[in-house]
């Protein structure tokens, strides 16, 4: 079987056509959208991408991480720091950033999995490491401490150093999101992917039938950390500033988890649909709360929306859409 056949096997034709149409639309979107529309679409793609990365850990391998800000933060800080201090551009720095995040992920994963922490206990371990790192960065001079690290805002386009306008960042994040989508599909169709699902459903049974549980979980956290670090680097160069208070905040980690949970955990389209829903709602609520001029109102709408979704679509929005419109994969 060729790779393409493997990747598309069992997918209904209408889903493939839909996917192709979506990609074409995304490629030409900057020409159709204004500045505001493009910035919203960038956010959607960012959350879809980072949600996809988190989904590998939780949706595929069943390990709840609430500390993914750690990998994004470490990645972003290292790439930005290398550029800021030594003028090393992000295309080179990203390798160091990803390596550091993978190392961090390996430490968290090895300690957690070696001592068989699962569920909430593992989640708290990930939070603890992320918070620990946040405070460490608060006191680390090279990274700017609590005062933050700022990259010079440069309007001139310098693709070699990932400096430029929204259009550049749009295509970079689109490439990342699309590439990760294909990667996740390939992972799910691989032996490793099947192992992950077995571990997610019943770790003890998986161990009993000979699945190398520890190794599979380690690979999951390393891939997930690497991808999240890419998101962190992109984020650092897009926003040009980094603060430990936000980069490693628990709120940031939670943000990463929302799109896949809302969209549909363990599904490929879940993070994408979730990102569209959440970013869309966020923009609508921003506009709404500006009408009333009350701070905190936006978050109240947001909280209510989350409440309604988790109460009525606890398995996520995408599985429901897929069922209704026949986009779902045929069971083989």
């Amino acid at each position: 079987m060729t790779l393409l056949a493997r990747l598309t096997g069992g997918v209904p034709a209408r889903s493939l056509w839909g996917l192709g149409l979506l990609l074409v639309l995304l490629l030409v979107a900057p020409a159709l959208l204004g500045k505001y529309g493009l910035s919203v679409l960038i956010l959607v793609l960012y959350f879809a991408f980072v949600g996809q990365a988190w989904n590998i850990m939780m949706g595929f391998a069943g390990q709840l991480s609430l500390g993914h800000a750690l990998y994004a933060g470490v990645g972003g800080y290292i790439a930005a720091g290398l550029f800021f201090h030594y003028g090393i551009g992000p295309w080179a720095g990203v390798f160091v950033a990803v390596a550091a995040a993978v190392a961090a992920g390996s430490i968290v994963g090895y300690l957690g999995f070696r001592f068989s922490l699962a569920g909430v206990y593992f989640a708290l371990l990930t939070i603890a490491f992320s918070e620990f790192t946040r405070i460490a960065f608060d006191h680390w001079g090279w990274a700017g401490g609590s005062g933050g690290l700022f990259l010079k805002v440069d309007a001139t386009s310098d693709i070699l150093n990932l400096r430029g306008g929204p259009l550049l960042f749009y295509y970079v994040i689109l490439a990342l999101a699309a590439g990760t989508f294909v990667l996740c599909r390939a992972l799910l169709e691989s032996r490793l992917g099947r192992y992950w699902l077995a571990i997610r459903e019943d770790p003890e049974a998986a161990q009993a039938v000979g699945v190398p549980v520890l190794r599979c979980k380690m690979i999951a956290i390393m891939i997930s950390a690497a991808l999240t670090a890419l998101a962190g680097v992109w984020n650092a160069f897009y926003y040009n500033n980094l603060f430990p208070e936000t980069a490693f905040a628990m709120g940031r980690s939670i943000e990463f988890t929302l799109a896949p949970i809302i969209g549909g955990l363990g599904t490929l389209f879940g993070p994408i649909v979730g990102a569209v829903v959440l970013t869309g709602l966020g923009e609508i609520f921003t506009d709404l709360s500006e009408v009333f001029h009350i701070s905190g109102l936006k978050q109240i709408f947001y909280g209510l929306a989350l409440l309604v979704i988790v109460m009525y679509r606890p398995a996520g929005v995408w599985p429901w859409i897929a069922d209704r419109f026949g986009f779902g994969e045929k069971r083989r």
Partner: peptide, 27 residues
């Protein structure tokens, strides 16, 4: 139910409570 669903439910409740405080008493 699965832990992530409980987590999301209580997260929603948390967001509502803390922002209700923000609306009523300010930052």
């Amino acid at each position: 139910r699965p832990e992530h669903q409980q987590f999301l439910l209580l997260l929603a409740i948390a967001i509502l409570l803390v922002n209700a405080c923000l609306v009523v008493a300010g930052p």
